[in-house]
Design a protein around this nucleic acid. Sequence first.
DNA 1: TTGACTGTAGAACGTTGTTCCATAATTATA
DNA 2: TATAATTATGGAACAACGTTCTACAGTCAA
Lengths: 219, 219
Amino acid sequence: MMGAMEEARIEAAPTAGPYHPRRRSRTPSADVERELVAAAEAVLVRDGPGALTVRAVAAEAGIALQGVYSRLGGKDGLVDALLLVGFGRLTATLEAAQGPDSLGRLRDCGRRYREFSLANPHFYAIMFEDAIPREREEAHPGEVTEQAAAAFTALVRVVEFAAASGAISAPEPTEVAQQLWNTVHGAVALELKGLILTPDPAATYTASLETLIRGLATA
Amino acid sequence: MMGAMEEARIEAAPTAGPYHPRRRSRTPSADVERELVAAAEAVLVRDGPGALTVRAVAAEAGIALQGVYSRLGGKDGLVDALLLVGFGRLTATLEAAQGPDSLGRLRDCGRRYREFSLANPHFYAIMFEDAIPREREEAHPGEVTEQAAAAFTALVRVVEFAAASGAISAPEPTEVAQQLWNTVHGAVALELKGLILTPDPAATYTASLETLIRGLATA
DNA sequence: TTGACTGTAGAACGTTGTTCCATAATTATA
DNA sequence: TATAATTATGGAACAACGTTCTACAGTCAA
């Protein structure tokens, strides 16, 4: 499967010594973690969550297996690093939402949420569906939780903006943002599992969002 | 871990023969599949998806490991059997929805959906979150898909009833039922993952449903 | 009763996450 | 720069997992 690639890292074979005749190259210490996470992302995107094994990632990075444990604390740490990347990108995607008016921006935010999930289905799966079961029962590190909360905050901002303009009623923006999250997450989660039983998932998604906006409209 | 239980199935040791002196009891053929699925449910409910191993289920049932393969086609078949049970129960739960009027029945249906997911979190996880990764890439058998569709049909019926009474507008009940599913699934999926960031998840759930109903109200 | 079927126990295989080790290359210190 | 402390490497090894294969023996049907 990986064939002759690893031979490139053998720099020389100075003597035909008995035990360890060949010199080994070594990844600079400062690069190990970054390269492992980059390799993990490549494996995840290319082959999906099921193919993300510690050995596959180490081979993809050209780094010793042990590096995953000494630098990232094992597979769970590797996945946590990917979660941080994923939630960071989702946050950036949602924060970039814009539109001609406050409702247009809310609609764009919803559209971006779906596009992110469809463009990054494997990322979305590990972020929201535990597509890679955790080996140990420990909770995610605080950074991951905080980045996930940052994505939610982007929704709160959009809701606040729409409420300030009077387009919707949101006395408690967090409550309404949660309703928005429920709707968009439910829609994309079901779509990723093939459980949108209507002919046009995109149209149904838009309709769901419009129903929400109508339900939130000022009386 | 299972200690002395399996000794109970050794009925006698008639002779001190050299190789296989002990007589073995045998599960009646007609019972093997049913008992395996029952044991799998017990393990799933008690210990969660991560503990549902073929060996654990066979031990729980007191049935030889091989039975899972000869009767159910392996772990995936075992999980499919559980999915069938789970979707069947969800369908029954939703079909039992009732209320003083058509909107009351819709509200009860939404309430029942959440209660089912919170009362059966491990079932919900394998039904909607692939909490047990499939070993082979094959699709679920038709029965599973049909039973999942039956659960959705229960939602369609409730929507049709509400539309017929004029409480909501649903020219295409399937479209509206899908919007309802998006909302309730999104809410419970996020709640099961601890991602309801409002103080009172139950209240936010109800509010989400009310916003949906308001958005679907007849103009 | 007899033969076909099939559950049982056990071993075994490959893959997985994980740990440990001696070795050697890099990095930091004096 | 010389020396010491770090740390990446490669390999073996472990337990747990899904899966397959086997001889054996209990059950079921002709």
